[in-house]
């Protein structure tokens, strides 16, 4: 049976169609979820896409975490539902306290879009299990508020528990502490990533096909996961 992967659309979501395309190319069935509908429609995993939910005129993701669909997702994540937050989705996961820390304004204060090399630090999550630890991948980064910050104790804990999922290699594009590009929760089912793997899934439109691994990982995870 084809896995069903939900992609949430908030007002102001922008990369939702792209996340759905990546899910499709990875071989799963994308299911569009609506921010105002708490029902997850039986999906096996959820992607929170990039964008500017509710305009993000307040703190990024601060309003989206209160969306009806998020209440269901927070509960389901506690039960093991794989959740990937990309860019704005990462910000929402932090605001929803599914992941620690916060994403703040890029240190250089500019929006930045470039092709970024990442090193996969943890291949143990639901979204990175097809990668090798230490593998370098090329993924576009594009954000204005992608600077990951947390207190030193949290950062140390993330490192110690192997929960730093990916780091920026070369120039850090936004000033993130310890070059952190992606992190996961203790169970490894919730991952937040600032760069956009959904924009590296087609040779024609992306800088590489490396992003596809995030989406095939969750399919592999679902096959292995107990029903």
């Amino acid at each position: 049976m084809t896995a069903r992967v939900g992609v949430v659309t908030f007002p102001g979501s922008l990369d939702d169609g792209d996340a759905a395309r990546a899910v499709r190319i990875a071989g799963a069935q994308p299911v569009r979820l609506w921010h105002g509908d708490p029902e997850l429609h039986g999906v096996d995993a959820v992607v929170l896409p990039g964008g500017f939910s509710y305009g993000d005129y307040l703190r990024c993701g601060a309003i989206a975490r209160f969306a009806p669909v998020m209440e269901t997702i927070v509960d389901a994540a506690a039960g093991g539902l794989p959740v990937l937050g990309i860019c704005n989705g990462f910000q929402i996961l932090c605001e929803a306290h599914l992941l620690p820390g916060a994403l703040t304004r890029n240190q250089h204060l500019h929006f930045r879009n470039r092709d970024q090399i990442l090193r996969i630090e943890s291949a143990g999550t639901a979204w990175t299990n097809v990668f090798q630890p230490g593998q370098e991948v090329l993924i576009p980064v594009k954000n204005g508020e992608g600077c990951y910050v947390a207190d030193p104790a949290t950062l140390d804990a993330l490192e110690a528990e192997g929960r730093v999922v990916a780091r920026y290699v070369g120039v850090n594009p936004n000033g993130s502490q310890r070059d952190i590009a992606a992190i996961t929760n203790p169970a490894g089912n919730v991952v937040g990533i600032m760069p956009h793997p959904e924009h590296a899934v087609e040779a024609l439109t992306g800088p590489s096909l490396d992003g596809l691994g995030f989406f095939t990982s969750v399919l592999k995870h679902l096959v292995g996961a107990p029903a």
Binding site: L14, G17, F111, N113, P140, L204, T205
Partner: peptide, 13 residues
């Protein structure tokens, strides 16, 4: 140009 998103919508060739 780095300050502009060129990827969104996934159809930029």
């Amino acid at each position: 140009t780095e300050q502009y998103d060129r990827y969104v919508l996934g159809n930029t060739v």
